[in-house]
Measured scan of single mutants.
Amino acid sequence: EEKRQVKQVAKEKLLEQSPNSKVQVRRVQKQGNTIRVELELRTNGKKENYTVEVERQGNTWTVKRITRT
């Protein structure tokens, strides 16, 4: 359940930055209360990979860091 929520948060964050792209989740890793989500962003056939680190704060998820990989 929490992985599902985190995927959603990570996707939304990337789509905010580039709204007309397609996002696909590649991998989800958990480390303590930080969850790392690896995503693939496609814009006009151009692929970019991103890693989004999401942290739990109380009962909400906040995006800590977005890295292009």
Rank of each mutant, 00 (worst) to 15 (best):
I66G: 00
V37S: 00
Q5G: 09
S18T: 06
V37H: 00
K11Y: 05
K30D: 11
V37N: 00
N44C: 07
Q29R: 14
Q8R: 11
E53T: 09
P19K: 04
Q29E: 12
K22Q: 13
V63Q: 00
G58F: 07
T60Y: 10
K3V: 15
E12I: 08
A10V: 10
E16V: 04
G58I: 03
T34S: 08
I66V: 12
Q31C: 11
R36D: 02
I35G: 03
T43C: 05
G32M: 04
Q17K: 10
T62V: 14
R65H: 08
K3A: 14
G32H: 05
T67L: 13
R36P: 00
N44D: 10
Q8I: 10
R27C: 06
E53I: 14
E48S: 07
N44K: 10
T62K: 12
R65G: 07
K64T: 14
K13N: 03
I35S: 06
V6F: 04
E12Y: 03
K7M: 15
E53W: 14
N20Y: 05
K11S: 10
R26Y: 07
Y50F: 10
N59C: 05
N44P: 06
S21F: 03
E40H: 08
K13W: 07
T69E: 11
K7W: 15
N44S: 10
Q8D: 09
T60E: 14
R27A: 08
R27K: 08
L41M: 12
Q5S: 11
S21Q: 02
R36W: 14
N20G: 14
T67F: 14
E38M: 15
G58K: 06
S18C: 11
E55F: 12
K13D: 01
L14N: 01
K30G: 13
K30Q: 14
R56T: 03
R4E: 14
K46W: 10
T51W: 12
K13R: 08
R68H: 09
E40C: 07
N59R: 06
V63N: 00
L14D: 01
K3Y: 15
R4K: 12
T34K: 06
E1N: 06
V52Y: 01
R4W: 10
L41W: 02
E2M: 08
V37C: 03
V28S: 02
W61S: 01
G45F: 11
T34V: 13
E38H: 14
V52T: 01
V23K: 01
S18Q: 10
E48P: 00
R4I: 04
R56M: 08
G32Q: 04
N59D: 13
N59K: 10
E53Y: 14
V25R: 01
E1L: 04
Q8M: 08
K7R: 11
E48Y: 10
V54W: 03
Q24V: 14
K46E: 07
K64S: 12
Q5N: 08
S21L: 02
G45D: 08
I35Q: 03
N20F: 06
V6Y: 05
E55K: 05
K64L: 15
E48Q: 09
T62D: 05
K7L: 15
E53F: 13
Q31I: 15
R4H: 11
K30A: 14
K7I: 15
Q29L: 14
V52D: 00
K3C: 14
L15C: 04
L39V: 10
G58A: 06
Q57F: 12
V23Q: 01
R42F: 15
V54T: 02
V28L: 12
Q17D: 06
K47L: 13
A10S: 03
V23M: 04
K11F: 06
Y50G: 00
K3F: 15
R42P: 00
E1H: 08
E55I: 13
T62H: 12
V54K: 00
Q57T: 13
L41R: 03
P19M: 03
R27F: 11
K30P: 10
V9S: 02
R36E: 07
E1G: 07
Y50I: 05
I35D: 00
K11V: 15
T60I: 13
E48I: 08
R68Y: 06
R36S: 11
T60Q: 14
V28G: 01
K11P: 01
L15S: 03
K13F: 12
N20M: 08
L14C: 05
V6M: 04
S18L: 13
V9F: 11
R26T: 12
K64G: 05
N33S: 11
K22H: 12
I35V: 11
E48H: 06
K47I: 14
K47Q: 09
T69H: 14
R27M: 06
S21G: 13
E12Q: 13
K47D: 04
L15V: 04
K47S: 11
L15P: 01
E12T: 08
K30Y: 15
L14R: 02
E48L: 06
V9G: 01
Q31L: 14
L41Q: 04
K46P: 03
K22G: 05
R26I: 14
I66N: 00
R27Q: 06
T67S: 09
V9P: 01
Q31G: 05
R26C: 08
V6W: 07
Q57Y: 13
R26G: 06
L39T: 02
V25F: 10
R68F: 08
R68C: 05
I35C: 06
I66M: 06
N20C: 07
L39R: 00
L14A: 05
E1I: 04
T62I: 14
T60W: 14
E38I: 13
N33G: 08
V54M: 11
K64M: 15
N59I: 07
P19E: 02
E2W: 13
Q24I: 14
E1V: 06
I66R: 00
Q57E: 14
T62Q: 12
P19F: 03
G58T: 03
Y50L: 03
R42W: 15
Q17I: 15
K22D: 10
K7P: 03
L14S: 02
V25A: 04
Q17G: 09
N59H: 08
T43P: 01
R68K: 12
Q17C: 09
